[in-house]
Design a protein around this nucleic acid. Structure first.
Length: 817
RNA sequence: GCGAGAGUGGCGGAAUUGGCAGACGCGCUAGACUUAGGAUCUAGUGGGCAACCGUAGGGGUUCAAGUCCCCUCUCUCGCACCA
């Protein structure tokens, strides 16, 4: 390779070592029964065409961490793949008349090369591309298993539909107040469609349990929020015309305060219970409400509106007759779509009652009583006491909640109930570029699952891509028409494809044995060794979608008998986002995109790697600073010269310098080790910088001595996870054996870490007056004696005894007067 | 409104969890080497002439607070008529 005295030339060394690593299979990950495993995973990218600096920011530190674990003696699996189904490919097909498959695979080819230059230890033999039949066969297989186990079902339901993407969206793909499409920001509309769902709600309770995993509090709280568990009771209300309406309430203790009832405008009972007199008004209101969801629901301060149905219900606890209204502040999609209104103790009901002059009846009061008439609802539970509530009067509201529920249950008027905000996962998409749902519709047999042996149901290649908004599969006769697997008669295939989140819900298992040919989605022997994932890293934006789905999948797979653990990923960590230099999100339209390829050309991959780790707190991210990267480039250049350029002239080692060097060496090992372990990459790099600064200082005296050589070797090892290319080159030039990356990570000696001399701060009343350098093992008395002898101290004391003296060994002496 | 998190020099960020605030780096200033420097090296760099003052603001606990407690403000993210 290069010879000594050459300057640092990343463009020479990086391709060379990349090839060496490839040829020697350095990063191949295979099962080694006698070695502890470590499965590190970074979220797989969508093959948009170009590797973005954001991909680097996500992957490089994860890679460094994986490399570190490998040097710590673990057998590390750090795989990569491509989340290759999805809309952009299909849109490209429509716009530019290029087949989604071709578009996707070309992008992958390009990104694969870009990923390779990054220098990560991806084992490319384990690469998985989700749009290949070898992969999606198993998505289909899992669908069939879910179907068998009652976890996949079809139902006609109002779903969110993006008119621009021409497809349905899962609830979590609808964002913001105006309910727009996650991808294209078009406001979604409601459509009544027959769609496939996964029964994620079966796992709602279990999904709330995070006890076995180490996930960021933020993600946990977002998920809990999303799942939205609330406990209360379901209460049955009989109407005067004999219909029955069930409501869900979290406040059974307020039952005596119910003064009216409200149904969602779309509630199925509305038509039945509306009396002739009110028909027109109700119909009109229902129409307005249905338009509401289609029109952008602008922030119109949400004045509550509603209309009376003409019917009355009977409060089961006291026999009072209460009017039944409909109002759009009650949602069909939550609870039972009907509420009992307690205006005295609920903000919304209060506003509604005020507007329509409905009675307000107080049944919970604080010790000091309430204003009469009420000016605002009293919603407190903790301090409230029940009143006007029959035999329950006098109980605290909290007690009441429990006791009233039990009582309802005894009397058959209702029951304790838990309600979740989480809804089943809508997986049907009316698009071509996705996993076909392996279902056939037969006139005779109805809905028939495709037999396992017939998988994969392959996407036909010769589909036509027209901007009509309908799935090409629907117009593909060969695909559409088939025979019923059960009766052999004519049948039609399901033409919906699966949400791409299905692919990413189980891809971590596909890496174990890509495109597996066996009887299950992955090789059980590989699974037994590598699973589950030890460390998963990626963006926090997936908290409520991907990260809930993959937990659900793993639990479902467990119940099917495919895995024997409850959670897919033991530890989760999120990185932040790198913004443009203008502190805005990077985007082509803003023109603030930083292209990694340009940076590689200017500095080489190692510099980018080091900068991405050093520049920000990883979990935070922040704006890019194109001047900052110069610092990382300088750092690598300095290391290069420091370790490879000899000293001209005499070297004069002193015992003191050797000791200083050795101590700093061990301190650096300690810091670097602890920081990488904690994913504190910025301080890890900082510790290496500090150490190299010291090395530069002692180089004229120690160069070539045994302690120097030791330090040089160790620094190279410590640098290896961050800057793998330069570390390998330096290692080789130092005359060490290939490869630096499979050497044992250095260990520190706790005794050598401690300073021999420490500076103690001498404070008077907490203010620093003096500093004192003493041996670490100096006794308190010695420190005191020396401190009191100091001019600045004794002059203040003037012989008087201090009130108190606090001594913190190795840190300070505080003299309190 | 609810939930989560954050606020430290000109900037990115450190601070062994209550013990020297500002490590490391960027930028900046001065100097050196140079035909030249947007290269490199050396020194300096929170504010203030000082005593001192400084971690969003105010209060508190403590010998000691960026760190703990209470209040306020600002920002970011998520959810949002959730019954």
């Amino acid at each position: 390779m290069t010879t000594k005295y050459d300057r640092y030339q990343p463009h020479k060394i990086e391709p060379f070592w990349r090839q060496q690593w490839e040829e020697t299979g350095l990063d191949r990950a295979v099962v080694k029964k006698d070695q502890p495993k470590y499965y590190a995973l970074t979220m797989l990218p969508y093959p948009s065409g170009d590797l973005h600096i954001g991909h680097w920011y996500a992957m490089v530190p994860s890679d460094a961490r994986a490399r570190f674990m490998r040097m710590q003696g673990y057998n590390v699996l750090f795989p990569i793949g491509f989340d290759a189904f999805g809309l952009p490919a299909e849109n490209a097909a429509i716009k530019r008349n290029i087949h989604p498959h071709q578009w996707t695979m070309e992008n992958i080819r390009r990104m694969r090369e870009q990923l390779k230059s990054m220098g990560a230890i991806f084992d490319w033999q384990r690469e998985v591309v989700t749009c290949l039949p070898g992969f999606y066969k198993w998505s289909q297989w899992l669908f069939l298993k879910f179907y068998e186990h009652g976890l996949a079902y079809k139902k006609l339901s109002p779903v969110d539909f993006c008119p621009n993407c021409n497809t349905t969206l899962a609830r979590e793909q609808v964002w913001g107040e105006d309910r727009h499409c996650e991808r294209c920001e078009t406001p979604v509309v409601k459509k009544e469609l027959d769609q496939w769902f996964f029964k994620i709600t079966d796992y709602a309770e279990e999904l709330l349990d995070y006890s076995g995993i180490d996930w960021p509090e933020r993600v946990v709280s977002m998920q809990k929020n999303w799942i939205g568990k609330s406990e209360g009771a379901e209460v049955k209300f009989r109407l005067t015309n004999d219909e029955e309406i069930t409501v869900f309430t979290t406040r059974p203790d307020t039952l005596w305060g119910v003064t009216f009832m409200v149904l969602a405008p779309e509630h199925p009972l509305v038509d039945k219970i509306t009396t002739a007199e009110y028909k027109t008004q109700v119909k009109e209101y229902q129409y307005q409400a249905s338009r509401q969801s289609e029109i952008e629901r602008l922030a119109d301060d949400q004045e509550k509106t509603g209309v009376f149905t003409g019917s009355y219900a009977v409060n089961p606890v006291n026999g009072e007759q209460i009017p039944v209204w409909i109002a759009d502040y009650v949602m069909m999609g939550y609870g039972t779509g009907a509420i009992m209104a307690v205006p005295a103790h609920d903000t919304r009901d209060f506003a509604f009652a005020r507007k329509y002059r409905l009675p307000i009846k107080v049944v919970i009061t604080p010790a000091e009583g309430l204003a009469d008439p009420l000016t605002k609802p009293y919603t407190e539970v903790e301090q409230g006491k029940m009143v006007n509530s029959g035999t329950f009067s006098g109980l605290s509201a909290a007690e009441g909640k429990v006791k009233v529920s039990s009582w309802l249950e005894e009397k058959g008027l209702g029951k304790k109930a838990v309600n979740y905000r989480l809804r089943d996962w809508l997986i049907s998409r009316q698009r071509y570029w996705g996993t076909p749902i392996p279902i056939v519709y037969c006139e005779k047999c109805g809905t028939v699952p495709v037999p396992e042996e017939e998988l994969p149901i392959v996407l036909p290649e010769d589909a036509e891509f027209l901007p009509t908004g309908e799935s090409p599969l629907r117009h593909h006769a060969d695909f559409l028409h088939t025979t019923c697997p059960r009766c052999g008669g004519p049948a039609q295939r399901e033409t919906d494809t699966m949400d791409t989140f299905v692919c990413s819900s189980w891809y971590q298992y596909a890496y174990l044995s890509p495109y597996y040919q066996g009887a299950t989605p992955f090789d059980p022997a590989e699974g037994a060794y590598w699973l589950p994932v030890d460390l998963y890293t990626g963006g926090v934006e997936h908290a409520c979608m991907h990260l809930i789905y993959t937990r659900f999948f793993t639990k479902a797979m467990r119940d099917i008998g495919l895995v024997d653990f409850d959670e897919p990923m033991r530890t989760l960590r999120n990185q932040g986002i790198i913004l443009g230099e203008d502190s805005e999100k990077m985007s082509k339209s803003r023109g603030n995109v930083i292209a990694p390829d340009d940076l590689i050309e200017a500095y080489g991959s190692d510099t980018i790697r080091v900068y991405l780790m050093f520049g920000w707190r990883w979990e935070m991210g922040g704006p890019w600073d194109s001047r900052g990267i110069e610092g990382s480039y300088r750092f690598l250049n300095r290391i290069w010269e420091l370790l490879l350029f000899p000293v001209e002239g005499a070297v004069e080692p002193t015992a003191e310098l050797i000791e200083t060097l050795q101590r700093k060496l061990h301190q650096t090992i300690k810091r670097a080790t602890e920081d990488v372990k904690e994913l504190a990459f910025n301080t890890y790099i900082a510790s290496l910088m500090e150490f190299s600064n010291l090395l530069a200082k002692v180089k004229p005296n120690l160069w070539g001595t045994q302690p120097w050589n030791e330090a040089a070797k160790t620094l190279t090892l410590l640098l290896a996870p961050a800057a793998p290319y330069i570390a390998e080159e330096i290692w080789s030039q130092l005359g060490e054996k290939y490869s630096v990356h499979i050497q044992r990570w250095p260990e520190w000696d706790p005794e050598l870490v401690v300073e021999q001399q420490v500076e103690i701060v001498i404070q008077i009343n907490g203010k620093i007056k003096e500093r004192l350098v003493i041996p670490v093992d100096a006794s308190e008395d010695q420190v005191k004696a020396r401190a009191f002898a100091m001019e600045a101290i004794s002059s203040v004391l003037q012989g008087k005894a201090p009130r108190k003296v606090i001594y913190v060994p190795g840190r300070l002496l505080n003299i309190v007067l």
